[in-house]
């Protein structure tokens, strides 16, 4: 008997969701929002949260779900709305504990530990320069590096005749971003 090759198994529900998010993000997210937000909002409302809390928590939960689905690390054993409800509930409990701690503890005299937890300064600089890239480069880089759309799709959306042209353009955009961040850091170093 020959052993069958071991293929990586992605649960069909996760694969379907991933495909939907890649091919029509707006439609897929709107469907998820419509299906899951009312229940999460009701739960948070009944556990001391406001309408705005519900919105923030639910959107955080959707970002988590999105990144896991696109990154291929999501294993759905229930409907996406059930999964979102679970994440939302956990995030809300976490937020409640955070608020309770803040109300009982005095503000720290030394803010250094809080600063240490903040994202790297260079991340803020890059964020700033992504905004200045121009719409075409920005949307291309985000489509590839964050939304993880295939280059075939990016090429079609942006009117490139081939994947190769789209690839070259993507690296040109990345080079522009790197150069503008570099220039800014050099200028800062000289000023210091």
């Amino acid at each position: 008997m020959t052993a069958s090759p071991r293929l990586p198994k992605t649960p069909p529900a996760s694969a379907t969701l991933r495909h939907a998010l890649l091919t029509n993000r707006e439609q897929a997210l709107t469907r998820l929002y419509h299906q899951a937000f009312p229940a999460v909002s009701r739960y948070i409302g009944r556990h001391g949260g406001s309408e705005q809390d519900a919105q923030d928590i639910f959107q955080d939960a959707l970002v988590i779900l999105y990144e896991q689905a696109i990154g291929g690390t999501l294993t759905l054993t229930a409907a996406p709305r059930t999964y979102l409800m679970g994440i939302g509930r956990n995030l809300w409990h976490h937020e409640q504990r955070r608020r309770a701690r803040l109300s009982y503890e005095a503000l720290p005299d030394d803010l250094e530990p809080l600063v240490a937890e903040a994202p790297e300064e260079s991340t803020f600089a890059v964020l700033d320069y992504v905004e200045r890239l121009g719409e075409k480069c920005k949307s291309m880089l985000l489509a590839f590096y964050y939304f993880q759309q295939p280059l075939t799709q990016i090429a079609a959306t942006n009117g490139y005749r081939s994947v190769r042209s789209a690839t070259v353009q993507k690296f040109k955009c990345l080079e522009r971003l790197r150069d503008s961040v570099r220039r800014a850091f050099k200028a800062e170093t000289i000023e210091l």
Binding site: T123, V126, L142, Y146
Partner: peptide, 11 residues
């Protein structure tokens, strides 16, 4: 660091 910034921008 560029990829980290792009991740934040994407979020």
């Amino acid at each position: 660091q560029l990829y980290q910034g792009l991740r934040q921008a994407g979020r």
